[in-house]
């Protein structure tokens, strides 16, 4: 039963990823695209966690933690670049 649930939730997250991709490609303004990227990485954390559950291995959490940290930093850097035209002042 659990493996079926994992499959269903994986499909849900994949649909969510496709939605983010459409917003990333069509987004009328730059902030829209950054928001889509931000959501994209958060959703990919979910996908990695589900893969870890499916494999029954706890190793994937390190990857998830790394994506969470790098994703936040990249969002902040992109915003800063759009705000000031420079990342490190």
């Amino acid at each position: 039963m659990l493996s079926m649930t994992i499959t269903i939730v994986s499909v849900m997250i994949c649909i969510a990823l496709v939605m983010n991709l459409i917003r990333l490609l069509t987004g009328p303004d730059l902030p829209d695209r950054i928001l889509a990227l931000d959501t994209l990485y958060i959703n990919s954390i979910g996908l990695i966690l589900l893969f870890g559950l499916y494999k029954g291995s706890a190793l994937y959490f390190e990857g998830a933690l790394l994506i969470a940290m790098l994703g936040f930093v990249s969002t902040a850097a992109l915003c800063k670049y759009l705000l000031r035209g420079d990342i490190i002042e």
Binding site: L2, T5, I6, V9, M12, I15, M19, A36, N43, G46
Partner: peptide, 21 residues
């Protein structure tokens, strides 16, 4: 219990992306 949590989480993730679109 695990399935319930996973399904709830998955639907909220889907909903957030649907709202984004």
């Amino acid at each position: 219990i695990v399935s319930a949590f996973l399904l709830m989480g998955g639907s909220f993730v889907l909903l957030g992306s649907f709202g984004l679109l």
